[in-house]
């Protein structure tokens, strides 16, 4: 269907046609023509780019909206279908690279309680590590249990210091999830506010703090390990 009738877009010249394409006012068939010309005609593509550049400051008005984590999961499935359950297996490969085989056993040990979840709540996993640090944690977030299970893979805290776990969401300041109890495997209960953010796929980070945790509510020591939560 051509909305233009006699007044064909080309009649305004290529430059106006490019402008109309960028502005977004053309009908489907006209956009199709423009899109083919962009691929085939470098001069026309430059006209389109010039209009994109002219009008693009208006795009500042689009508010940022964080998409739900399922959108990225669906995208990964769409693009990387050749690697079924890539998240889990690539993570497994990563852990093996990190430490001895016992790590895998520990990982399974803490993951086992989560393998038969009571409800279809998201379960997310993160490998926490950082350059210049031998501290490694494996974190499993179980929304149904409202807790994060942590397996301490390697790296000791200095005397009189504690490891504190932080959640970082987007560009916001880190939110403390508490001091990580000593031990190879620990569980930390998560507050409802933090749960909601975690479900969106936040970053977890571990910082070295004075015994008892950060006195300021923000990390005061170096980040010794960090990682993205990914779904299993």
């Amino acid at each position: 269907m051509t909305l233009a009738g006699d007044d064909r877009p080309e009649s305004g010249g290529d430059d106006l046609f490019a402008a109309e394409y960028v502005l977004g006012v053309l009908a489907a068939d006209e956009r199709e023509i423009a899109s083919r010309r962009i691929d085939a005609d470098a001069a026309f593509a430059r006209l389109v780019d010039a209009w994109e550049a002219r009008l693009s400051p208006m795009a500042d008005a689009y508010p940022e909206t964080v998409p739900p984590i399922r959108a990225k999961e669906a995208l990964d499935r769409r693009l990387f279908v050749a690697e079924p359950r890539a998240g889990l297996w690539s993570s497994l490969a990563f852990w093996r690279g990190l430490a001895a085989a016992s790590v895998a056993a520990l990982a399974i040990y803490i993951a086992v309680p989560y393998l038969n979840p009571p409800a279809e709540q998201p379960r997310l996993i993160a490998s926490l590590a950082a350059d210049g640090s031998d501290v490694r944690y494996l974190a499993v977030y179980d929304a149904a249990r409202r807790e994060v299970g942590l397996s301490h893979v390697s790296g000791e805290r200095a005397a009189g210091k504690d490891f504190e776990l932080w959640m970082i969401e987007g560009k916001n300041a880190p939110v403390s999830m508490g001091v990580i109890p000593a031990g190879r495997i620990t569980h930390m209960i998560i507050s409802p506010a933090v749960q909601e953010k975690l479900a969106q796929g936040a970053v977890l980070a571990v910082s070295l703090e004075p015994a008892g945790g950060s006195p300021t509510g923000q990390p005061t020591g170096p980040v010794v390990a960090a990682g993205d939560l990914k779904s299993i």
């Binding site: 690539s90 993570s91 490969a93 990563f94 993160a126 490998s127 926490l128 590590a129 950082a130 350059d131 210049g132 970082i168 970053v203 980070a205 980040v223 960090a226 990682g227 993205d228």
Partner: peptide, 13 residues
């Protein structure tokens, strides 16, 4: 595999 994004940002820091 782990957290390329996170580590990259923190390394800079």
């Amino acid at each position: 595999h782990g957290a390329p994004g996170a580590q990259e940002r923190f390394r800079r820091c």
